[in-house]
Each structure stands twice: as C-alpha cells, then as structure tokens.
Design a binder for these strands. Structure first.
Length: 496
RNA sequence: GGUAACGUGGCCGAGUGGCUAGGCUCAGCUCUGCAAAAGCUGCUACAGCGGUUCGAAUCCGCUCGUUACCUCCA
C-alpha cells in the first residue's frame, strides 16, 4: 500500500505528511453548496477535488467519514445586516416556501454531482436541521466572554478573541490591517467592531426563516453551521476540512475562531485544504460576477459561450487534468482536448479487458519490467504529492502507451513477468475507475445503431440470406428486442 | 490601499537546482483496400533584465503584466 500521502495544509502553508488522528479512521468535512441557485462549474471543481481525496483515502485503506453540508439558511445578500437571506429572496420571488427553494436546488445539486460520478458523502447535514446545535455553540462562546448580545442579536468579539488567540492565522491576515481597511458599511451599528461577525441575528418582521432562541426569534450567523455540524459528526478534533479558496476568509477563519472560542478550544480540523477557482477568460467564474456556466448548460451545450455540449466525464477529466490548487481556465478548446484525452483513457480500459497474459514462452526483458513497474509507481507518486491528479494522468498516459504496444504485439507479452502485467493492469484500472472516478459513458445513440442493424436486416431479407436474417433476429432478441416485419416496413419493439 | 499568488511552447497544463511531464493541435513514418485507431519521429518553452551557482523554468532582486482575497460566492 502506498502510505505516503502528502497534503498542502493552508494552516501551515506547507505540504505535510497526512497522518490521521485515529487511524484507520479519517474524518473529513467539506463545505457544500448554498442551495439558492443552479450548480455550476465551480461547484463541480470543489466536489470532484474532494471526491478524489475521499476515494484515494479509501483506496489507501482508511475508513473515512465524509461530511459535506448543505447550507439552506443564513447567508445574507450583503454585508449590510439589513440584507435579505438569499434563499428567502428567491422564495419571495416565486411565492415559495423557503424550504421548497432549498430542496429544489439541493435535488439538482445532487443529481448533477451524481452525473459527475461524485460519490455521496457519508453524511450530508443541513444547516436548518442543526439550529439547536448552533444555539448551544453560541451559548458556549458567550460563556467564554468572546461574544456579546445586542438587541436580540449575538456577535462574535473578534478583538477580544484575538488577545488570547490569533485571529487570521489561516488566511494570513493581521488584525490591524483588517481594521485599517474595513469599509464603512451601513446597518452595522450594533457591532462593537466592524470585524465582528454575527452568531445569531434577530429576524426582522418580514423575515420568514426564523427560529426561537434565548435571544430572539431569528436565524444563525453565516459561519456557525460548519462549526456546529463538523463538531457534531466528526468531533472537536478531526482530520481534514476542505472547501473553495474563496471560503478561506472570512468563512473558515471565523469557523476556526468559533471552534477555539467554544468549550473545545480547538481549530477543529488539522489539515485545511482549499481548491482554487475556475476562471473564464482569466477572470474568476462566480455567482456574483454573473459569468458562470451551469452544469446543465455544459451538459446540454445550451450557452452562448459553448461551441458544443460537454459530457460529465469530459468535465471531470478537465478538472482532474489540472492540479487542484491552480486556477483552471475555461475554454472550448481546453474542454475539447479534455474530451479526447478522456476517450483515450477509456479506450485503454477496453484494451486492458481484452489483454490476456500468456504464460508460455516467457522470456522477461528485465529493463522493460523495471520501467513498467516504475511507471506504475509514478501514477501513485502523483497522487501522493498533494493529490496531483495532473501528474497521475500524465503517468497513466505513459503507461497506456506500453499497454497499447502490448495489445498491438509491438511489445511481446512474453517479455513481461506475470507480476508486472498484473501490476500495470491493476494500477491502471484502479486509478482510472476507483480513484479518479472516471467511468465509461455510453457513446453514440443506441437507437441510431439499432436503425443501422435493421437496415442490414432488411438487405439480408431482400437478398433472401435467411441465415443472416436469423442471426440478426437472434442477437437482437438477446438484447430484449424483437423485429417486426410489417407490411408498412420493418419496425422493432421491446420483447414482452 | 493591505495581503497572497501567478506569468511555461499554437492551446491546455505538470514541474522548485542537473534527468523526455502529459494531453490537444500540426508535420512525417509504420500499419492499412480506403480510413480510423495505435505505435514511432519531429516542431515551436520557461514574461524581461540582473544576480547566486560548476549548473536555474526552478533560488534572490528589480521591471512589466495578470489574478485572487480583503463583501455573498466552490
């Protein structure tokens, strides 16, 4: 087993050997989507990145508990506290119950992620289902004198916290700099400092999403849910916390502060991992910029910027061909190249299924065997080096060249030792299918292919080649399809 | 303004001191009824300038350019 996984930890700004607290168990928490809009390419990148991490950890033999939350409450439209909840805003527009909006987009998110072959997390908790836990957490922070209540709202006291702890240690921010550069925003009269953030907000009379609490009828603050839910399901000290780079500050910074300010006095996670953004013409693709492409648009090709539709596996491969900490630039050209690369890997899978090791007349070429084993190792070396899937894919292509040569007989099978052959086959199949999570997509249109067969059937009939006619009928019957010779022509139906 | 990154060949994208990244594109060859696939070969690189070093895409400095975070965002 290849047990030398190194991960870049944002907290220490270094690549570190990954060692779980309680091996073989691994706890992993990833910030999921706020469900008020359609999932886009950016969501896909985050989900795919951590999906591969999840898959690889499992491949290494760890028993992973993967928690990815659904945020269905509490994100305000802007920093002015008069701002509306995003989900509430959407609900009002469409005369829906807020939970209807959240459920609607949650369903779409899960469907699209399934298309991308992203495994479901082990627990997918919703913020709205953990109000009690969040209230308890606020009580703890209040008890530690690191929060204060004003008019039914509770705020985190960043400066008080910073005296004993280091606020900004994750994102590398210095509190004086933050203070010097804060903008003056409206509606912040209640806060003692502009850096303070809400733990609980009293709901205005028009705010529909509200829950009772010791302080007011209201709703929890923006960062609280992840602290509360990660603690509930993974404990106060767990292994990995992931999310998009844009969540590093303030979201994850505040999360750490909340964790430290609670009774637990811990950062929560030990390894903080952030995936970089997808860019469009060199600019970040984001909801607020309005330049994002939905996954459904990508899959259907229905978008002005798209020259064609791109399949889910093309997207997945596109994401994996870059390292997760680099920005990845979207373009039609890049996606079309990704499509071909993906196809190439899939063809390799098919070749491997057909390849058989032949025992007789084996005269191993020692150098070749050594080279092939090294290529197999390289595939893993990429993953171990901070989940460098780009490296791994490059190594897989190198391996694939040899596999194709074997298939064509350019390299005789007899020159391989049995163990070498088994190793390269297992490496290729395991990595492509299980770890990278790529899968074959049905190519072509089945009905059109059937149409083609029916044409041959028709020709055979006309030529009175009844042996061929019988074969076609029999083979299609195996597929559950019967041919119907009608006066009007040839048709088919499902076998009843 | 503060902070942090980045700038690699026609395109995408790895690579942190010396060893071919890889994919896509393009050209040639092998194979082939034609083609495709596959294999082989080739092509155009490390923003600029200076420094450290036997040796730098890789370390340091400066210049130019781009971006991100500092406000909801994966």
């Amino acid at each position: 087993m290849q047990h030398k996984l190194n991960l870049y930890n944002t907290l220490t700004r270094k690549k570190e050997l990954f060692e779980p607290l309680h091996a073989p168990f691994v706890g992993m928490y990833v910030c999921g989507p706020t469900v008020y809009g359609e999932p886009h390419l950016g969501h896909a990148r985050s989900a795919v990145t951590f999906d591969v991490l999840y898959r690889y950890l499992k491949h290494l033999g760890y028993k992973v508990r993967y928690v990815r939350n659904i945020t269905d409450v509490g994100h305000l439209e802007n920093d002015a506290d008069e701002g509306e909840d995003k989900i509430q805003k959407k609900a009002k527009l469409n005369h829906l119950e807020p939970m209807e909006v959240a459920q609607y987009y949650r369903n779409i998110y899960q469907q699209e992620m399934a298309k991308l072959n992203v495994l479901s997390p082990d627990i997918e908790p919703r913020a709205s289902g953990h109000i009690i836990e969040q209230i308890e957490l606020i009580k703890e922070i209040l008890a530690n004198d690191l929060a204060y209540e004003v008019n039914g709202s509770v705020y985190f006291d960043v400066q008080a916290y910073d005296k004993a702890h280091n606020y900004g240690k994750l994102s590398g921010r210095i509190i004086e700099d933050l203070l010097n550069n804060t903008r003056t925003l409206e509606g912040q009269d209640e806060k003692r400092s502009p850096l303070d953030f809400a733990l609980w907000k009293k709901a205005s009379p028009t705010h529909i999403m509200r829950w009772p609490s010791p302080w007011s009828d209201g709703f929890p603050g923006w960062h609280l849910e992840c602290s509360a839910m990660s603690r509930k399901y993974l404990g106060t000290n767990f292994d990995i916390h992931g999310g998009g780079l844009d969540l590093m500050f303030p979201h994850h910074e505040c999360e750490i502060a909340q964790n430290q300010a609670s009774h637990d006095h811990s950062d929560g996670a030990r390894y903080w991992i952030h995936n970089n953004m997808i860019t469009l013409n060199g600019q970040k693709m984001g909801k607020s910029l309005g330049n994002f492409i939905n996954l459904s648009e990508l899959f259907s090709g229905n978008h002005d910027l798209l020259e064609m539709k791109y399949s889910p596996m093309t997207i997945r491969f596109f994401i994996l061909q870059a390292h997760y900490r680099s920005t990845l630039d979207f373009s039609n050209e890049a996606l079309q190249a990704a499509r071909k690369g993906y196809t190439k890997l899939m063809n390799g899978l098919r070749v491997l299924e057909k390849l058989k090791y032949t025992e007789e007349a084996a005269e191993p070429d020692e150098k070749l065997n050594v080279d092939l084993l090294k290529l197999s190792e390289d595939c893993f070396r990429g993953l171990n080096d901070d989940l460098n899937t780009a490296k791994t894919i490059a190594s897989l292509f190198n391996l694939l060249k040899k596999i194709n040569s074997l298939y064509l007989g350019q390299v005789p099978m007899a020159s391989l030792a049995r163990g070498t052959f088994d190793t390269i086959r297992e490496t290729y199949q395991k990595l492509v299918l299980d770890v990278l999570g790529l899968q074959e997509e049905p190519m072509g249109d089945a009905e059109e292919i059937l149409e083609l067969v029916l044409n041959f059937y028709k020709e055979a009939k006309e030529a009175k080649a009844y042996d061929k006619v019988d074969i076609i009928r029999a083979e299609l019957k195996k597929q559950g399809i019967v041919i119907k010779d009608l006066k009007s022509g040839i048709d088919w139906a499902y076998e009843e």
